[in-house]
Each structure stands twice: as structure tokens, then as C-alpha cells.
Computed example of a mutant assay.
Amino acid sequence: MTVDEDKIDDAVLALMWLTIHDERRAWKSFDWGATDRLYRKGLIHDPMNKSKSVFLTEEGLERSRELFRSMFTRKAE
């Protein structure tokens, strides 16, 4: 089985939307490999610090919101 890391990264970024606080900070209790890839993609700031949260870039915040809506919401009936 081959894992699609881009799909994993999208899911992690979408789930970060659930924990947004202080306008663009999210808890970083996700796989370190995924947060490192999100950092390299320019979607979050450097996750390698003592803080329990990570700062999303403008692009990361927007993409997080879009992914959350597309993956985890239902269409209005």
C-alpha cells in the first residue's frame, strides 16, 4: 500500500481548522511528519518550538477553512 502524503496533509490541515484560536493559531498535536510537510509547503510557520500550537500562514488559514468545508460539512437541505 502506498500512502498519499498530500491527502494526509490535507486532512491534517482541515482538522487544524477545528482548533483555530487567536485568529490563526491551531493546536499542533498531529504527526510531526505531516506538520513538517505543511511547513515546507508554506501553510504553517515553523512547528519546531515549545509552543503547543502552530501559526497558520494566510494561505494555510484559507486552505484549512476550504478543506474543512469540503471534507467535513454537509450541503444544506
Score class of each variant (00 low, 15 high):
Y39A: 04
W27H: 09
A76V: 15
K52D: 08
L13A: 02
E66M: 03
R65T: 08
M1V: 09
F55M: 00
V12D: 05
R63G: 12
D22K: 13
K28R: 15
I44S: 04
W17T: 00
V3M: 03
A34K: 03
Y39C: 04
F68D: 07
T57C: 00
R63Q: 15
E66I: 09
D9N: 10
T73Q: 00
F68G: 00
G42Y: 15
T19P: 14
K75H: 07
M71E: 02
D9F: 01
W27E: 15
H45P: 01
M1E: 13
L13T: 14
K52C: 01
D6V: 13
I44R: 03
F30L: 04
A34C: 06
V54R: 02
E62D: 13
D36L: 13
V3C: 04
T57I: 02
R69I: 14
V3D: 03
D31Y: 07
T57M: 00
G60T: 14
G60H: 10
K28F: 14
K75Y: 09
D4H: 04
R65I: 11
K75V: 11
G60I: 15
T2L: 12
V3N: 04
G42I: 14
S29G: 13
M1F: 02
T2K: 11
M48W: 07
L15V: 09
L18Q: 07
K28I: 09
W32F: 10
D36W: 05
P47K: 00
M1P: 01
L61F: 13
R37C: 06
R40D: 12
H45W: 11
D31G: 12
M16H: 06
T73C: 06
E66R: 08
S70L: 13
V12G: 06
I44L: 06
L56E: 10
A26C: 14
M1Y: 10
T35D: 13
E58G: 00
K50C: 06
I44K: 01
W32K: 05
N49V: 14
R74D: 12
P47Y: 00
D9W: 06
G33P: 06
S53W: 11
D46G: 01
S64L: 15
H21R: 11
L67Y: 07
R65W: 14
I44H: 01
R74I: 11
R25N: 08
E23D: 08
W27Y: 10
R65S: 04
R25H: 15
K50S: 08
M48T: 03
A14Q: 12
